[in-house]
C-alpha cells in the first residue's frame, strides 16, 4: 500500500519538477545541437540583401521598369516615415488640437465675451470694403473645407471609420480626398489675393511693441492702444502667410506625383504638410474665437463691412481717430438684426 501511496505522492511531484526544470535545460540541448554542426552555412543571398539594406546611399540598380525609384531595392526611410506618422504625429496632432480647443474654451469660461462697456453707439464706420470681405470669406470657407477634409483623412481611420464602417468611410474619404485636392490650388490663389489686399495694413508700426508688452489687454480691463490692426492681428496675418505658403508648397508637391519626385521628398512633404496644417488649424481656433463669440461687435466687420464706432474706439482707437469723421448712422435693418444695438444713437456725439 505504501508503494502505491509513494507513486501517487511523488509521481505528480516529479512531473511538476520536470515541467519546471526542463524548459531551462532545453536551450542547452539545442545549443549543443547547433554547436555540433561543423560548418556555419554561408548564405550569399543573405549577404546580398544585407548589403543592399545597409548601404548608406540608396542602392540604386538598373531596371527595365520605368517608374519612381524603380531601381531602388530597399528604402530605409519608409520605416521611419511609418513610425513617425503612426506613433508620433497622429497622436501629438490630436493632442495639440484638443489642447488648443480646451484652452479656447477655458478662456471663454474664465474671461467670457469681451463686451463694449459703453454699449453700441448706433453709429457705424466702414472697416472692410467688399473686395476685402470677399477675399477673406473665400479663403476662410476654403480653409475650413480643407481643414475638415484633411483632418478626416488624418484621424478618420481611428475616429470615423469605427463609427460608420469601412465601406462608408472609404466612400467618404474618396470624396474628401478629391475635394481636398481640387480646392487646394484655389485656396493658394485666394490666400495670395488676401495677402496682397491686407499686407500694407499689417506692416509693423509704432505702438505694436507696446501692444504686445501689455498683452493686448487680454488680462484685466485696460485696453491696449492699436491702429487699424493690432499687433495680435498682424502676427496672425503673417502666420497665415507663412503657414499658407508652407502648406501650399508641400501640398503642391504631393498633388503632382507625375514629376517623378523621390519617395524621400514625398515623405518629407507629407510630414511638413501635416505639421504646418495642424499648427495652422490650431491658430485658426484663436482667430475664429476672437472674431465671433469672443468679442462683441467683431464679426459684423466681416459680415457687413461696418463696425460700431464704440467698438472701433475700444479696440482700434488710433484708427478710429483717423476715420471718425466718416461715421454714419447704422441703418435700421442692421440694428434690428443685432438687438444689442437698439440703444438710442445719441450716445455718440462724433
Amino acid at each position: 500500500m505504501s508503494r502505491y501511496f509513494q507513486t501517487f505522492l511523488f509521481g505528480p511531484l516529479f512531473i511538476l519538477l520536470a515541467c519546471l526544470t526542463l524548459p531551462a535545460t532545453a536551450p542547452a540541448v539545442a545549443q549543443q545541437d547547433t554547436g555540433a554542426m561543423p560548418l556555419t552555412v554561408p548564405n550569399p543571398s543573405n549577404d546580398l540583401w544585407r548589403a543592399v539594406r545597409q548601404r548608406e546611399a540608396p542602392a540604386s540598380g538598373r531596371t527595365q521598369v520605368r517608374g519612381v525609384d524603380s531601381g531602388v531595392l530597399i528604402t530605409q526611410s519608409g520605416e521611419a516615415f511609418r513610425n513617425y506618422r503612426m506613433e508620433t504625429f497622429i497622436g501629438y496632432a490630436g493632442l495639440f488640437i484638443g489642447v488648443v480647443a480646451a484652452l479656447v474654451l477655458l478662456f471663454y469660461l474664465v474671461r467670457g465675451r469681451i463686451d463694449i462697456p459703453d454699449g453700441r453707439s448706433g453709429r457705424r464706420v466702414r472697416r472692410f470694403v467688399d473686395a476685402d470681405r470677399i477675399a477673406h470669406w473665400v479663403t476662410a470657407v476654403l480653409f475650413i473645407v480643407l481643414a475638415v477634409t484633411g483632418l478626416t483623412l488624418l484621424f478618420g481611420r481611428f475616429v470615423v471609420l469605427p463609427i460608420i464602417g469601412a465601406d462608408a468611410f472609404g466612400a467618404l474619404a474618396n470624396v474628401f480626398k478629391q475635394v481636398h485636392d481640387y480646392l487646394s490650388p484655389v485656396f493658394l490663389i485666394s490666400l495670395l489675393v488676401l495677402v496682397v489686399r491686407f499686407a500694407a495694413k499689417n506692416l509693423p508700426a509704432r505702438g505694436d511693441l507696446k501692444w504686445i508688452t501689455s498683452g493686448g489687454g487680454i488680462i484685466g480691463n485696460a485696453h491696449a492702444s492699436a491702429g487699424y490692426f493690432n499687433a495680435g492681428e498682424k502676427i496672425w496675418f503673417w502666420s497665415v502667410l507663412a503657414f499658407g505658403v508652407v502648406v501650399s508648397v508641400s501640398g503642391l508637391l504631393l498633388l503632382f506625383p507625375v514629376f517623378g519626385l523621390s519617395r524621400e521628398i514625398m515623405q518629407l512633404a507629407l510630414i511638413v504638410h501635416g505639421i504646418a496644417a495642424v499648427l495652422f488649424i490650431g491658430g485658426s481656433f484663436g482667430h475664429i474665437y476672437i472674431g465671433t463669440i469672443g468679442t462683441e461687435g467683431s464679426l459684423e466687420s466681416m459680415t457687413t463691412g461696418y463696425v460700431d464706432t464704440n467698438w472701433a474706439k475700444l479696440h482700434h482707437d488710433r484708427w478710429y481717430e483717423e476715420v471718425k469723421d466718416q461715421a454714419e448712422p447704422t441703418p435700421v435693418s442692421d440694428t434690428q438684426r443685432t438687438p444689442a444695438s437698439m440703444q438710442p444713437p445719441a450716445a455718440d456725439k462724433a
Binding site: 530597399i74 520605416e79 511609418r82 472609404g170 507629407l270
Partner: peptide, 27 residues
C-alpha cells in the same frame, strides 16, 4: 476603399504599390 493617396508607396521599403495616372493633374 482605396483613395489613391500614395502613403503606402511612401512607407513600403520595396516600392511595391503602384498607381495608374488618373484624373486631373495626373493624380
Amino acid at each position: 476603399t482605396c483613395i489613391g493617396c500614395g502613403y503606402c508607396f511612401y512607407a513600403c521599403p520595396f516600392g511595391a504599390p503602384q498607381f495608374p495616372s488618373a484624373g486631373a493633374f495626373g493624380s
